[in-house]
Design a binder for these strands. Structure first.
Length: 508
DNA sequence: TCTTCTAACACGTTTGAAATGG
DNA sequence: ACCATTTCAAACGTGTTAGAAG
């Protein structure tokens, strides 16, 4: 068994978001209890950004190009996470899971099922290069996975996400809490799927409407927009081969004139798919600097603990807009497009289906006082924050700390590199923090320190455990059907193995 | 014949090193 | 000498296209 079937957590009527709520805390402020894996005790929310754009694609039927060398997604996955403990480290990953068990084909103007899906490929994760990082950092800005690449090449070793063409997938976000060697937290694992971002993987676009949407919204495809140049390029090339060199000049001029007319016609037919649906939000863009340093955290606080029914007002779109604008100005290359600003500003929190992986083995807190202040701080600050939030001034890239950019410009490094990087960080950190007696108590050998991401291991994907340190005993032992103990070291490269299939995930 | 896939292509964007100016 | 800004070329990302493969 992989894990339990994904199931949606209750819809919060206030924020209209799905999120993980600790048991019995749907209507109260979260008070993490000592001894519970902290991640499991927080009302964690994940929201997909750019919902407007996703909706546009969804209406038509989103397609994502996959190539041998890897192709980025567009729209890309940008996620905001709320409800994490600001002072605890988390690893964020994303993968693609089958949307259903069907294979599709394009039939003239619509997608139709053409049979059963092929056996699922080994699962691969795109690990956010900033991982592990503090919850504070993850909540501060939208987490961009825009450099995640999709491929159909099963032999790639560059950390690309491998998909089957003509199959439907949906993104899934994994939040893995790093074990806290001092606090005695067991870590934890949450995952969120985004059905609204589902797509069919294709090797060439089938639906022309999708192509238009991509061209209209993706800045890299500007060259193909109906400006009378790009399309003419191809036609010119074609015509050039047929034209007679002696009479070329006059004929070309006439031809270009006719082409321009043609393009004009197309312009009428294919009006830009980007609409100023967020016009109402625009006035906010001129607002004053925001008094809260962490826009998402403040949004979270204002909204009543990320959607908890605490008697707070519904998280208004304008509130989101204020926060979002900060992110817009802060960086995010996509924000150069005014269209994207609108998406951002007007984005409501989309639905995300989350799954909680229970922690069968809890450990007592060594120091409860260390565990809770950061969380309580959020809720106390929430009560104090009544004034409306203001917009920050526009910031240039140069004005912002490099750390801000890193998350948004994360490079899709090979998984081995990512793991090496994480390992280096963990090793460096552990060497400073872990008391000597704990190091020996938990086992100083690699075997016992190997499982820093057991939940993912249980997904079937295997990590190169040689590259990790951690405390195996601090991780749950909800074991998969591999028959292998979760604490048993696995020495197979992460990028090469992994038996996760949708079937196994569903327990079939 | 049809569907799916691949590689080359041109164009626009991004990036980072070098050049420039204060 | 130092720092901030500008310039520019290479790298990268994009959809299109023709043709290959099954």
């Amino acid at each position: 068994m992989y894990v339990h079937e994904d199931y949606p957590y209750p819809l919060n009527p206030l924020t209209k978001t799905y999120g993980y709520y600790p048991q019995g805390q749907m209507n109260s402020v979260c008070q993490p209890s000592c001894g519970e894996a902290e991640l499991m005790s927080l009302p964690v929310h994940a929201a997909l950004q750019g919902r407007e754009l996703w909706d546009k694609f969804n209406k038509v039927g989103t397609e994502m190009l996959i190539t041998k060398t890897g192709r980025r997604m567009f729209p890309s996955c940008r996620v905001t996470v709320m409800g994490l403990n600001p002072k605890v480290k988390y690893v964020l990953m994303m993968d693609m899971v089958p949307f259903d068990n069907n294979k599709y084909k394009w039939n003239r103007d619509h997608w139709e099922v053409s049979g059963k899906s092929e056996p699922h490929l080994p699962n691969r994760f795109f690990i956010h290069p900033d991982s592990p990082a503090l919850g504070e950092r993850w909540m501060q800005y939208p987490i961009s996975f825009h450099k995640l690449k999709l491929t159909n090449n099963t032999l790639n070793s560059k950390g690309l996400v491998v998909l089957h063409s003509m199959h439907k997938y949906q993104p899934r976000l994994h939040i893995v809490q790093s074990p806290d060697p001092c606090g005695g937290h067991s870590g934890g694992y949450l995952r969120f799927t985004f059905p609204e971002a589902s797509f069919i993987a294709v090797t060439s676009y089938q639906n022309h409407e999708i192509t238009k949407l991509k061209i209209d919204n993706n800045p890299f495809a500007k060259g193909f927009r109906d400006n009378g140049l790009s399309r003419k390029r191809f036609r010119d090339k074609d015509m050039h081969q047929k034209s007679v060199s002696g009479q070329q000049q006059n004929r070309t001029q006439n031809h270009q004139a006719s082409l321009l007319d043609t393009d004009d016609e197309e312009d009428e037919q294919v009006s830009s798919s980007v609409e100023s649906t967020g016009a109402l939000c625009l006035p906010h863009m001129k607002a004053a600097p925001m008094p809260v340093s962490n826009p998402f955290l403040s949004a979270f606080m204002k909204s009543g603990g990320a959607g908890l029914a605490c008697g707070q007002e519904e998280l208004s779109q304008s509130t989101i807009s204020h926060q979002s604008q900060h992110m817009l100005n802060s960086k995010n290359r996509d924000s150069r497009r005014p269209d994207d600003n609108l998406q951002y500003m007007c984005a409501s929190l989309p639905e995300a289906h989350s799954t909680r992986i229970p922690m069968p083995q809890q450990q007592p807190c060594h120091s409860p006082d260390i565990q809770t202040p950061a969380v309580l701080q959020i809720y106390s600050a929430q009560a104090k924050l009544h004034q409306s939030l203001h917009l920050p001034p526009k910031l240039s890239r140069m004005q912002l700390p490099e750390s801000v950019f890193r998350s948004l410009d994360s490079n899709p490094k090979p998984l081995s590199d990512i793991f090496n990087t994480i390992r280096a960080r963990v090793v460096a950190k552990d060497s400073q923090i872990i008391p000597q007696h704990e190091q020996t108590a938990s086992g100083s050998n690699r075997e016992e320190k190997a499982l820093i991401f057991p939940a993912v291991q249980d997904c079937g994907a295997t990590f190169c455990t040689e590259q990790y340190t951690g405390h195996a005993t601090e991780w749950p032992a909800f074991n998969g059907n591999t028959g292998q103990s979760s604490t048993e070291p696995r020495s197979v490269a992460f990028s090469q193995l992994g038996e996760y299939t949708g079937e196994s995930a569903a327990g079939k």
